[in-house]
Design a protein around this nucleic acid. Sequence first.
DNA 1: CCAATGTAGTTCGATGTCGAACAATATAGT
DNA 2: ACTATATTGTTCGACATCGAACTACATTGG
Lengths: 154, 154
Amino acid sequence: MSEDTPTGESDTATLFRFLNEVAIVAQLSGNAFEKVMPGTMTLPQFIVLNHLVRLGDGRTPLRIANALQVSKGAMTNTLGHLERAGWIAVRPDDVDRRSKRVDLTGAGREAHAAAIDALGPELAWLAGAVPPARVRAALPLMEEMRRALDVRRG
Amino acid sequence: MSEDTPTGESDTATLFRFLNEVAIVAQLSGNAFEKVMPGTMTLPQFIVLNHLVRLGDGRTPLRIANALQVSKGAMTNTLGHLERAGWIAVRPDDVDRRSKRVDLTGAGREAHAAAIDALGPELAWLAGAVPPARVRAALPLMEEMRRALDVRRG
DNA sequence: CCAATGTAGTTCGATGTCGAACAATATAGT
DNA sequence: ACTATATTGTTCGACATCGAACTACATTGG
């Protein structure tokens, strides 16, 4: 949520508007993706699966939470849903018994592949609607902003 | 939530990464703002107040919901919190009795001003951490993307 | 004038998020 | 070794979001 439309203003005002747009785009794109995702899979669930598929499973919940910038509590919640869906398996870590390890199941990899397939057309449509060159050009800015906010957070 | 880091890839892959970053920046900036907001005010509540202060009050809930791109149900919820806080007053519309009208209260304007004051330093810090010129340059892209997603939604 | 449709708002259930409190376990410092 | 501190994960309450079902009222077409 967020919005509005000023005129010709200060750096902070522009930044504020920019963050408004960022929030709306995040919301709308998230909703659009959830609508095409197969079955009961939600976006946060897909993002965790995608993370494990791409960077490897066997990670700890905390490591995943940090990588995806969500709280431990949020990760506990999402991993619970993924496990109940049969898409991941969680095992204890014998070396550090406070910890757990998260593995993908075969069903999890299949569900991820299905989601990727479903997302393709949506992404292709959006790539056709906005100039990819400008998206590419703006990526570093978003990454910098993310890093800056992440640092400030601690 | 979202994340990851590929290499040199297709337009849709870049777009996907871009949307990941957008989602994280939205989340982190939202959290950062909520942390400095005065009292019990949340970000969605501030955004509604800000909308009313800048574009004028007396609007209907549905009109606000559409402008801010949230569902009617979400707006009912947020307006309820704002009303209980004494920051807005909701009155029936005598012309169209299905409708309501949302007015700011004096306390609401004061709370908004206090929030703006609290947000200032945060925005100034972020404006110092990322090049404002690049933010300005990227704004139109975000607006286009928002419009594209909004159209697709219907 | 009435029936069919459309629109404004509310309610509900599922999901997600944060942050704080808590338990279990590990590590460090003396 | 033992105590103090740090880390991992869970739980809980408050808030937010969507989307679908539902009520109340308005508009449109015959």
